[in-house]
Structures are given as structure tokens and as C-alpha cells.
Design a protein around this nucleic acid. Structure first.
Lengths: 196, 196
DNA sequence: CCGAGCTTTGAACCGTGGTTCGAAAGTCAA
DNA sequence: TTGACTTTCGAACCACGGTTCAAAGCTCGG
């Protein structure tokens, strides 16, 4: 079935392009990354990108959508188990850091919503809100269950997510700290601030 | 002395422009903000901006430099007093949030270094590093003095600053939370994560 | 080996947006 | 009022970068 092989090759190509784009977006930011650079990073000619993606914005959309899906899946998995609030939060933090920094599918650009057309932006914002709500839910449950100290879950959640999202700004693969170390240190610090 | 009045008027104009630019940068991001929008926000014609500032990059530079100066001044003041580590950190956090969110001189764009020419960028990065080092120093001293639990001061400081810097992304003046509330909640959470 | 799609290419197009510029308007001392 | 100097204006310039396109190269069934 060569049609299958075709389809699989095309899909792999799309993945490779998304990886390259995500890397560039994280490194230089969405606005400062050119299609020509993305093409170069993916070993393609500039124009050829458009055979696989309709626009730069679509590229950003898929990057963000993909990583948000991964992180939402973690939230669901964590809620399904019988963990305490602290363990749940720790797991979510680790997963978030991995999504942000792992080179493998580091579609970490779920950050720059401004550069998206209204239609796509609405979808991403909705998904991001769902994620934020899921994390906030863990915090709230922890507070209600007396595992966490009283606090404003809205603001604590935003502080927590801000710390995590900001990693994309300073993390460099060639730097000292491995992603796992970062995840551990962040989980320690950011969970400790909540437990009674 | 009308020459004085001239100079003062020009200086005031520069300040007003910087405020307007900072506001737009924070709202829409550096790359997505046009000189025409900044001009409109400052009640000026597009071309007239260039009578006061040589380029958009210079505008960004002064925004960042100014807010970093303010935050560095807070660090110095705090180190001069006889406060404990927790109180020092609380003060720095409050000051940082104020710099990020206060409309008055909210030159909050000390965030997008990428859009700067090498010369100016080097200066901002150096200043930003000085600030990060000052905050890290408070954390380290706290750990050494047994006021804070053992931790990696580098990563804790980055988490903390990330949470603070990220506020510019979601804060809206017309929103529910006042800057002071945000500062209090953040200080509680982010300091509590360190104290033994 | 051939033809019908896929895929790739890179040069060219074109809108956006930072910047320039020449001239007009305003300000102030004399 | 005048004239020198400062400030303002907005249309035009120009480079950059997202996008298009027509032609060429490939792949694979027949």
C-alpha cells in the first residue's frame, strides 16, 4: 500500500516541521522567527513549507494545540488516580516542564497567542483556559481538603504557571541544568509554598 | 529662563512617550506594537516620535533600563536595612509587581531583549543579570542563615522571577485583582515556599 | 519505460511597518 | 512684529518577511 507510505511520510514531515518551528519559536520568539529560518531548520526550501502548512500562524496554532493537549492529558490522568493534592501538583509541574523544554516534541510556544487570527486564537485560548482551570482545581481541592494552606487559588495558579512558562525564556539545552533537575527543583519550591 | 522650561517640557514629553510605549509594549508585546500606535497613545504624529527618540529599539531600551533601575534601587535599599531574609524577599516581590503593573510608570517591558541591537542589548542583559544576582543573593543568604530551607538558589530565583514577569501577560487594569492584592498573594506564596 | 500525480524549488510579489524628509506651525527674545 | 529656532506633521520611502506560483524533479503503478 504505497498510499499509506505516502501518507505516513507526509505526516512525519509535518511532525518534523512542527518540531523545527517549535524550537525556533522558543529560541527567538514567534514574531522574530522567519519562515525562511524555520525552513532552514527543517531542511526545506522556504516555499515548500506551504505545501504542508497554510501559514505561519497555522504553524503556531498546531504547536500550541499539541503541547496543550499533552498537558491536559496529564491533568486528566492525575485526577483519575488516588493521589493527594501535593502529588497531583508535582506530577503536573513535571509534565509542564517536560512539555516546555524537552527537545523531542518541545512544542513550547503555547505562549504567544497574540499572533493568531481570531478564529484560531479563540480555540487556543479556550484550551489554555481549560488547562488553567484544571490546575486551579487541584489547588482548590487541596485547600478544601486541608492539604494546602488557605490562599487565593486564582493567583497562586497564575504564579505557578508563570514560573513554568517563563522557563522557555531562559532555558538553553547547552546550559548547566537538565530539564529533569529543573522540574524537580520547581516542583519542590512551588508545592512547598502551598502545603500546610 | 525659558531654556529651562524648554528642557523640562521636552523631558516631560519623553516621559509621557515612554509611558505610552511601555503600556503598548506590555499590552501587545514589542514586535506587535507599531510606532503609529505608540504615537496615537501618546497623542503625537507618527513622525514626531523621532524628534524625541531615534528608534523603536531605543524606546524599548529606555523602558527596560528605567524599570530595572527602579528594581535595583529596591534591592539596595532592602539590603541596607536590618531585615530578615523573608522580609527582604517580600519587599522585593512587592516592588517588582509594582514596576510590572502600576500604570504610572509601568515600564514593564524588561522582558523582550531579543529586539535590541547588540550594543543596547548587552547593557540591558548586564543590568538584568545584576538584578537577578541581587535577588539570588537574598535567597542564598536566607539559606545560609537557616531562615530558608535548603534549595538551589539559582532555580528558585528563576522560578520566582518567572512568576513575577509573567504577570505582564495576563494582568489587565480593568480586571478583578488590584496590583496590591496580586503583590500580596504572590509574596505570601513565593516566600512561604522558602521558609523552613 | 511512460505518464499521472505528488513534491520541491527559488525567484518574484506585495503588504506591513519602521523610518525619513521637506515644509508648515508654534514659541520666544528683541 | 520679526526672525531664529524648536516642534509638529503626514505623506512617501524602503527593507523585510510572509506568501504565491509556474516550472521542474520525483515516485510509483501500469
Amino acid at each position: 500500500m504505497p498510499a499509506d507510505r505516502r501518507g505516513r511520510r507526509a505526516l512525519a514531515m509535518r511532525h518534523a516541521i512542527l518540531r523545527a518551528a517549535a524550537g525556533e519559536f522558543r529560541r527567538r520568539g514567534f514574531a522574530d522567527t522567519g519562515m525562511r529560518e524555520i525552513a532552514a531548520a527543517a531542511d526545506l526550501s522556504p516555499g515548500n513549507l506551504y505545501y504542508y502548512f497554510a501559514s505561519k500562524q497555522e504553524l503556531l496554532y498546531f504547536c500550541q494545540s499539541h503541547s496543550l493537549d499533552r498537558m491536559l492529558a496529564t491533568c486528566r490522568a492525575v485526577q483519575a488516580g488516588r493521589l493527594g493534592a501535593a502529588e497531583r501538583l508535582t506530577a503536573v509541574i513535571r509534565s509542564h516542564v517536560a512539555c516546555m523544554l524537552d527537545e523531542l516534541d518541545g512544542a513550547a510556544a503555547h505562549t504567544e497567542v497574540e499572533g493568531l487570527p481570531v478564529r484560531l486564537r479563540a480555540r487556543i485560548v479556550a484550551k489554555r483556559d481549560r488547562y488553567e482551570a484544571a490546575v486551579r482545581r487541584i489547588v482548590s481541592q487541596g485547600v478544601r481538603g486541608r492539604a494546602f494552606a488557605p490562599c487565593d487559588p486564582v493567583l497562586v495558579t497564575r504564579a505557578l504557571l508563570g514560573a513554568l512558562n517563563w522557563t522557555a525564556r531562559w532555558y538553553r539545552p547547552e546550559g548547566e541544568r537538565r530539564p529533569a533537575e529543573i522540574a524537580d527543583a520547581f516542583a519542590d519550591y512551588l508545592v512547598r509554598g502551598l502545603v500546610k
